[in-house]
């Protein structure tokens, strides 16, 4: 039995869990290649027009995998933490894929609740039953997969750069170097190191999140808001680079909350979609880098939105 796992959405964060789980059950794995032009084009062709870029890319991965596996895994990630959701599109992802792509093999679409052990076990038993009838083996595979995931560390924490920025956004926009055109490398080349939210403890974010009127009900919103606010409050970074996919509903909320919190602290929002041209992205990143560099020279006079830098003398 060959299980297909699309390398899209939260694959970068949770692949140790899913790959270990299915290999422990004795399945052979077929994982789609890293995102490339062909995958993106295939995704755009079959996905509903209004969806955001990462969902279209996921569709592309599925259509690339569909002929190479007997059983396709489409994660329906409902919850990662208690009382929080991911995004409505994650909950309805299997339906979007099943109704948009023809000729799919059998699929695993059981809802995945990672906020409790019982939820995980329920998912494992249902998903594992498609491969083996041995319940003991499924439970052992789940234990191994959880251990594997807990050992896994991801995230960027660049050291040794004169300027450091917080790189924020949904993980699938940050770690898919094709759709974000390798923004980290571009920043590094300009002498800017990046830090992502994985380098910060949740305890540090908690007080920032608690200061909101309402506790955010999206995991991404809570973490990203907490990470950015705590980084700015703790003066850990000189700027923020936010990678956001066009028409992302959750980002429209996070960005508004963040802007309200940080005031005129320098922030660059990079909108990405299937049309994004690389030259425009380069120009914006370079301009942002220039601004950060100059604001370092004229203390407290950084200008994030077009005001004059200094009234007496030119900084350059």
């Amino acid at each position: 039995m060959k299980v297909g796992i699309p390398r899209g959405l939260l694959y970068d964060q949770y692949h140790p869990f899913f790959t270990r789980f299915f290999t422990e059950l004795g399945a052979e794995l077929a994982v789609s290649p890293p995102t490339n032009r062909a995958i993106l084009d295939a995704g755009i062709q079959c996905c509903v027009d209004e969806a955001c870029l990462p969902v279209k890319v996921f569709h592309g991965h599925v259509s690339c995998l569909k002929a190479q596996c007997d059983l396709l895994f489409i994660p329906r990630i409902m919850r990662l933490y208690r009382g929080e959701y991911i995004c409505p599109k994650f909950c309805g992802l299997p339906e979007m894929v099943l109704n948009s792509i023809y000729g799919l093999p059998e699929t695993i679409t059981e809802p995945f609740y990672a906020d409790s052990m019982a939820g995980l076990r329920k998912w494992a038993l249902r998903a594992g039953a498609r491969i083996t009838r041995d319940r003991r083996r499924i439970k052992a595979a789940l234990e191994a997969a959880i251990a594997e995931q807990l050992r896994f560390k991801t995230g960027y924490d660049d050291q040794g750069y004169p300027i450091r920025v917080a790189l924020a956004g949904h993980p699938y926009n940050l770690y898919d170097t094709f759709i974000n055109m390798n923004v980290r490398k571009k920043l590094n080349r300009l002498g800017i190191g990046v830090v992502t939210e994985e380098s910060m403890d949740e305890e540090e974010m908690a007080p920032e999140v608690a200061s909101l009127f309402k506790k955010p009900f999206w995991t991404f919103a809570r973490k990203t808001y907490g990470f950015i606010s705590a980084s700015v409050a703790g003066k850990r970074v000189q700027g923020i680079v936010y990678v956001s996919s066009f028409a992302c509903g959750i980002d429209s909320v996070i960005l508004e909350l963040v802007r309200d919190r940080i005031g005129d602290f320098p922030m660059l929002v990079l909108k990405i979609d299937e049309h994004t041209g690389e030259a425009g992205v380069d120009t914006r990143i370079e301009a942002f880098a220039d601004m950060l560099e100059r604001s370092g020279r004229v203390e407290d006079h950084h200008s994030p939105h077009g005001q004059r830098l200094s009234c007496c003398e030119s900084p350059v």
């Binding site: 509903v48 209004e50 599109k89 309805g92 109704n99 509903g249 959750i250």
Partner: peptide
């Protein structure tokens, strides 16, 4: 425009 749940249903309606 951008309504997340309805984008899912728009994918299903066809």
């Amino acid at each position: 425009m951008g309504c997340m749940p309805e984008i899912v249903s728009k994918a299903i309606l066809p």
